[in-house]
Simulated assay, not measured.
Amino acid sequence: MDGLLETCRNLFGTNNLYDVLDIPKDSSAKDVKRGYHKVSLRVHPDRVSGDEKDEATKKFQTLGKVYIILSDKEKRAVYDETGEVDDENDIPQDRDWYDYWRILFRKITVDDIKEFEKEYKESEEELADLKVAYVEAEGDLDQVMDMVMLATVEDEPRFTKIIKNWIKNGDVPDFASFSDESNKKSSQRKRKAAKEAKEAEEAKERLGLGESTDSLKALIQKNKASREMQMDSFLSDLEAKYGQPKKGKTTDNKTSTKTKKTKR
């Protein structure tokens, strides 16, 4: 069985634990956790299906082990000094890594996303993500818009202006797929975004959802109450159909009871 460093090399193309989390060596504990969060979201098994799920699961489990080391001062110090890890003693082999991940990162609500969006939009982090996306996608705006977190069609003019300034200053290459993009492709992207927004709105209305988590809570409570009413009605129908005594039997029972009381 391969050790952690060998596994990292096979799955992530590097045996440097910091590179696996995409963070520098002098990262703070907060940066280590944030790096783990971002990479684990990218490879989380729930995001893929089929043959890719097995590899995603292995990556997800490996990231948890990397985080165990880099989030512990003593384990991290030993790794920084020797470049080695103690696979047998330092890393639990039978941990439920999904539960561990959930302990570290609570479930995200609609309000959490809105708050993060306010902090992320037009931040240095968004600029860094946009630059990476532009270079990796070689200027293809379809891919860029998919790669940058929370990007919408409304962000496209802003992104385009930023990228043009980078090209002008020599910060990024001038890819033909960006500079020579046809109006037809841009229009297709906008139509696709409008269609997806309409479908999302229809789904929200169909589910009775508003703009906050309170709406989701109300929907759950509404469904719960509806199910309870249906169950009450169902039980009432059963009682009416099967719970009443048959004709003639009631009289006999009453007579029998009275007889018993008389004899006493």
Rank of each mutant, 00 (worst) to 15 (best):
E154I: 00
E154C: 01
K114I: 05
R206P: 00
D54V: 13
L70R: 08
D174R: 07
Q230F: 13
F12Q: 00
A137C: 05
E124F: 09
A225Q: 11
D232L: 04
D142R: 15
E117F: 06
K118R: 13
N165A: 03
K114G: 03
H44D: 06
D2N: 05
E154D: 11
E52Q: 11
L209R: 00
E138C: 03
Q188M: 13
E181N: 02
K161M: 05
R106N: 11
Y134D: 03
K114S: 08
E117S: 09
S71A: 14
D146A: 10
D142P: 02
D46G: 10
F105A: 03
E122P: 00
V153F: 15
K217V: 15
D54P: 03
E115H: 06
D252L: 10
P173L: 03
A240Y: 07
K73C: 00
I163N: 04
E196T: 11
E52S: 09
N165R: 09
R158K: 10
K118A: 07
D155W: 06
V148G: 02
K261Q: 14
L130I: 07
Y98E: 15
D19G: 10
H44N: 08
A240W: 11
D80K: 07
S27M: 05
L127S: 04
S177R: 07
V132T: 12
D146Q: 12
N15L: 00
G64F: 09
D252V: 11
D232F: 15
L150M: 13
R264Q: 06
G210H: 07
L207E: 09
